[in-house]
């Protein structure tokens, strides 16, 4: 983006933010965006049955009325799956973080032992973990190690590796290198440089990222039961299957309260470490 100056006008030099070529490209970009929007709208309408859509408010009202009031007494059966859900999220986060920390150091360009070989491998691991949703990890793991909590914990753990490692390696790449140089100049070994110069600089980021991921994992683990990986999701799929809408509403209330509490905890922790 370089501006242009032209001196051929009579009223002194004129400065333009973009060259004519850049302006043209920009207009072309906007035009393509409009074309894409029109195309997508058409695609969406092709498979929509408008009779059903016009019916939607009535249907929503119907389900809404069946959901209300929530089955408050159902809470008795929810405590145990709720505990499972929290355990899945917490253990999964711990596993994810434990693996993500070394991966982040291997992936950060300023700490990796080899940019040619190890770094691409670590980045591949991060991308793989990030590109597959927890629910799909859980589907795979239920097939491999059978239904239950373990599948859920591992699914959450695998998904967390990429998230935590990516944010952490970016934090490592942004550290102040003068501090590293100063510690190295004292004759410190590699492990000591990490301990004294790098860890103190990334510690706030580390706690922030870990707690944030734990908070996300609480939300994600509530649905893992849908594919048989334990927790509240099992109860949810059972209630949905029997059309017990007031039980479904109760489960939503429990999930909402849990998520609010976990967000509060993560906000407090992030405040404390900065």
């Amino acid at each position: 983006m370089t501006g242009t100056l032209s001196t051929d006008t009579t009223s002194g030099p004129a400065w333009q933010y973009r060259t004519p070529r850049q302006s043209l490209l920009q207009w072309l970009g906007w035009f393509l965006l409009v074309v894409l929007t029109v195309f997508c709208w058409q695609l969406m309408n092709e498979n929509t049955i408008w009779a059903f859509v016009s019916d939607a408010p009535d249907q929503a009202m119907d389900i809404g009325s069946r959901m209300f009031p929530p089955a408050w007494g159902y809470i008795g059966q929810l405590w145990e799956p709720l505990w499972d859900t929290i355990n899945i999220a917490t253990l999964g986060t711990l596993i994810g973080v434990a693996i993500a920390v070394p991966v982040a150091f291997l992936a950060a360009s300023n700490t990796t032992p080899s940019t040619r070989f190890v770094r691409p491998l670590a980045l591949l691991l991060i991308v793989t973990s990030r590109s597959i949703n927890s629910l799909i990890w859980a589907l795979l793991l239920v097939a491999i190690i059978g239904p239950g909590l373990l599948a859920g914990v591992i699914a959450i753990g695998l998904r967390s590796i990429g998230f935590v490692a990516k944010l952490l390696y970016e934090a490592i790449e942004e550290i102040d290198f003068n501090q590293v140089e100063a510690v190295r100049a004292t004759g410190a070994s590699g492990a000591q440089v990490i301990d004294y110069a790098i860890v103190p600089q990334i510690l706030p980021a580390f706690w922030g990222i870990s707690v944030f991921r734990w908070d996300i994992n609480i939300r994600e683990s509530t649905i893992l039961g849908l594919v048989g990986a334990g927790g509240l999701g099992i109860q949810l799929s059972a209630s949905l299957a029997t059309l017990a809408w007031n039980q479904v509403a109760m489960i939503f209330v429990v999930i909402l309260v849990t998520v609010v509490i976990s967000e509060w905890v993560s906000a407090r922790v992030r405040q404390a470490v900065i």
Binding site: D176, Q179, T186, G187, A188, Q192
Partner: peptide, 27 residues
């Protein structure tokens, strides 16, 4: 200055000994 900003003054001064002490001790 290149001090490690988030460590204490004492830790910064003691980091001058890093070349002399084993990693577990400094940790």
């Amino acid at each position: 200055y290149a001090l490690v900003e988030r460590l204490t003054v004492m830790e910064n001064v003691l980091s001058g000994r890093l070349g002399y002490v084993p990693a577990w001790r400094s940790f």
